[in-house]
Simulated assay, not measured.
Amino acid sequence: MKNFADMMKQAGAMQAKMEELQEKIAGLEAEGTAGAGLVKVTLNGKGYAARVQLDPSLMKESEREVAEDLITAAINDAKSKLERESQEQMKALTAGLPLPPGMKLPF
């Protein structure tokens, strides 16, 4: 029965670490860029856009479609960076845990 009690302690500690990690991830920001820096988009840790910066040269009506495409690319770049960082932090948290093969956290 001692092993079960130890396992429950570990589960409680793991839950606390997961909550702490989720808060940390929520506080992250990632900047995505496109068009050699003409467009910059910053997303928060939950994947929502926090800021968009456009180079003044993109404000011509003839460049509108280009600007829209660049904004989309910058958002996707920032989102991808956030996902990679989140995965890296999750790996660090779960390192050494005896998880069954194929089991991923969070559930």
Score class of each variant (00 low, 15 high):
72 T>C: 10
18 M>H: 03
97 L>R: 00
75 I>Q: 13
91 K>R: 07
39 V>C: 04
88 E>K: 12
39 V>P: 15
34 A>K: 02
36 A>E: 11
17 K>L: 04
27 G>V: 05
93 L>N: 06
14 M>Q: 04
61 E>V: 10
25 I>G: 07
99 L>G: 02
72 T>S: 09
34 A>C: 02
53 Q>W: 15
27 G>L: 02
4 F>S: 00
10 Q>R: 10
50 A>M: 10
15 Q>D: 06
48 Y>F: 15
83 E>P: 15
5 A>G: 11
17 K>A: 03
20 E>P: 13
105 L>W: 12
105 L>M: 03
24 K>Q: 08
30 A>L: 02
62 S>H: 10
23 E>Y: 11
10 Q>H: 13
104 K>S: 03
2 K>I: 14
37 G>T: 06
69 D>F: 15
16 A>I: 03
83 E>I: 13
37 G>I: 02
87 Q>E: 14
90 M>T: 10
48 Y>I: 13
86 S>W: 12
89 Q>Y: 10
98 P>L: 13
60 K>I: 07
64 R>D: 08
34 A>L: 05
9 K>P: 15
107 F>Y: 14
27 G>K: 04
54 L>V: 05
11 A>F: 09
102 G>Y: 10
47 G>I: 00
71 I>M: 06
97 L>K: 00
64 R>Q: 08
49 A>L: 12
58 L>F: 09
74 A>C: 01
69 D>Q: 12
3 N>C: 07
59 M>I: 12
104 K>N: 11
62 S>F: 11
1 M>Q: 09
57 S>K: 11
55 D>E: 01
95 A>V: 12
36 A>I: 06
10 Q>M: 08
4 F>T: 12
62 S>W: 13
95 A>R: 07
19 E>C: 06
64 R>E: 11
84 R>Y: 14
15 Q>T: 07
29 E>N: 06
57 S>A: 03
37 G>K: 05
74 A>K: 04
56 P>I: 04
94 T>Y: 05
41 V>K: 00
58 L>S: 00
12 G>V: 06
35 G>F: 12
100 P>M: 02
88 E>M: 03
35 G>Q: 03
42 T>V: 04
66 V>K: 01
87 Q>M: 11
10 Q>S: 09
73 A>T: 07
38 L>N: 08
96 G>F: 06
66 V>C: 08
59 M>V: 05
96 G>I: 00
22 Q>L: 06
34 A>Q: 01
6 D>E: 10
95 A>Y: 13
30 A>T: 09
65 E>K: 03
11 A>V: 10
98 P>C: 13
104 K>T: 15
69 D>G: 11
104 K>H: 14
64 R>S: 09
38 L>W: 12
85 E>L: 04
68 E>H: 08
55 D>Y: 08
65 E>V: 06
78 A>S: 05
30 A>Q: 07
106 P>W: 00
10 Q>V: 09
53 Q>D: 15
23 E>R: 12
13 A>L: 09
76 N>F: 04
58 L>T: 00
92 A>N: 08
74 A>M: 02
18 M>G: 04
42 T>Y: 02
1 M>H: 13
63 E>R: 01
15 Q>Y: 12
36 A>K: 09
48 Y>N: 14
49 A>V: 15
74 A>N: 00
33 T>G: 06
47 G>Q: 04
61 E>C: 02
15 Q>N: 05
32 G>S: 02
89 Q>A: 01
36 A>W: 14
13 A>M: 09
107 F>N: 14
